[in-house]
Simulated scan of single mutants.
Amino acid sequence: MARSDEVYETLRAQILSGERAAGSHVPEESLTETLGVSRTPVRAALQRLADEGLVVVRARRGAFVADFTRADVDEVFELRRLLESRAAQRAAAHRTDEQVAGLGRLVDEMAALPTHDRDALHRNNRDFHELVLEAAASPRQQRIVTSLARSSPTQGTFFDYDDEDIARSLDVHRLIARAIGEGRGELAGELMAAHIRMAHESFVRRRFAEQG
Rank of each mutant, 00 (worst) to 15 (best):
E29G: 10
H25M: 07
S24L: 04
T69V: 04
G62V: 03
L187P: 00
E130N: 03
Y8C: 08
L106S: 02
A120Q: 07
Q14L: 13
E28V: 14
T34I: 11
A63D: 01
R12G: 05
E201K: 08
V55T: 03
R206Q: 10
H200C: 09
D67C: 10
E98V: 13
I180P: 07
A2Q: 12
A91Q: 05
A179D: 05
E190H: 12
M1I: 01
E210V: 01
E182M: 13
A44Y: 07
E9W: 02
E98S: 13
D160I: 01
L46R: 02
L113A: 15
N125D: 15
R95E: 05
T10W: 13
E19H: 11
E33L: 13
R205I: 00
R70E: 13
D67E: 15
E201I: 02
F208K: 05
T34C: 06
A92V: 02
V55K: 09
R168C: 03
R143L: 13
D163Y: 06
R60T: 06
V7P: 05
H116R: 11
Y8R: 09
L148Q: 04
A179Q: 08
M198Y: 13
L113R: 07
T96Q: 05
E190N: 13
T146E: 12
V65D: 04
L175D: 15
R81Y: 01
P139A: 13
M192N: 04
A21E: 12
L103G: 02
R70T: 03
H122E: 08
V65K: 08
D127L: 03
L35A: 10
E75I: 05
R81S: 01
R70P: 00
A93K: 12
P27L: 12
R58I: 08
A87P: 10
A179R: 07
V107M: 09
D72A: 04
E19C: 06
L113I: 06
G104N: 12
H129F: 04
E164D: 15
L31I: 01
A87M: 08
R174Q: 13
A13W: 03
R12A: 10
T32C: 15
V65A: 12
L148W: 01
L103P: 03
F68S: 09
G53A: 05
A101R: 15
I176N: 07
R207F: 06
T154R: 05
G181I: 07
G183D: 11
R123V: 01
H116I: 03
A50Q: 08
A101S: 10
R48H: 09
R95K: 05
V73G: 10
E201V: 05
P114A: 11
Q14A: 15
P27K: 14
R197Q: 14
V56E: 14
I176G: 08
G53I: 05
Y161A: 14
P114W: 00
R70V: 08
L175Q: 15
R90T: 03
G181Q: 09
T146Y: 12
R140E: 09
E28W: 01
